[in-house]
């Protein structure tokens, strides 16, 4: 069953279709949430995101792909949770609030990279995710996080430096 039919059934209140839609996209959205939040918070954010998805699914017009639309909702939910914790605006250091060992390290590049991102300080992690993976501009990020564009750029720069070292050492096996 394609997404459109599934959406139509979900909108008519079909619980089975909702479950099918959840199973189809929950893994991807959970990976998104884990890039922003620690596991426990990521689970809450994911649940909240799915509630909003089901409530506003009838408003989905298909301007973007369903996956992109749902990812945006999940990201917004993660940002809301970060704002609620009021940790996002704190001055961060490279060792502050590291999301340790949240992933199952199966040795794949994907898992290793997710682990590297999760280990970044919250500010670095959030800006890097929004800019490098979600594709937002510094201006948009500054507005979303209520910070200056300069702060966004500096946070991104620091995040890249950390990630570059880890990628070169652990994935490309560069010896310094």
């Amino acid at each position: 069953m394609d997404d459109q039919k599934l959406i139509a059934k979900c909108n008519s209140g079909n619980r089975l279709a909702q479950r099918q839609l959840y199973e189809r996209y929950a893994g991807r959205l959970f990976a998104v949430c884990l890039r922003y939040l620690q596991r426990e918070d990521a689970e809450d954010a994911l649940a909240n995101a799915w509630v909003k998805i089901f409530r506003s699914l009838s408003k989905f017009r298909g301007d973007s792909s369903l996956s992109t639309w749902m990812t945006r909702i999940a990201v917004n939910e993660c940002l809301m949770m970060l704002r609620g914790k009021n940790t996002f605006f704190e001055q961060v250091s490279e060792t502050h609030d590291i999301n340790n060992a949240i992933l199952d390290d199966d040795g794949s590049d994907e898992q290793q990279l997710l682990q590297f991102i999760a280990e970044l300080p919250v500010g670095f992690r959030t800006v890097f995710n929004l800019y490098a993976i979600e594709g937002y501009t510094h201006k948009e990020i500054a507005t979303m996080l209520n910070i200056s564009e300069g702060t966004s750029k500096s946070q991104l720069s620091r995040a890249r430096n950390i990630l570059k070292k880890k990628v070169e050492q652990n994935i490309f096996n560069y010896e310094r």
Binding site: G27, R28, L34, L114, A132, I133
Partner: peptide, 15 residues
């Protein structure tokens, strides 16, 4: 670096 990470992470799935 950004492209390398995005290509591997954007479609990651965790149950």
């Amino acid at each position: 670096l950004d492209d390398f990470i995005r290509q591997r992470v954007s479609n990651a799935e965790i149950t």
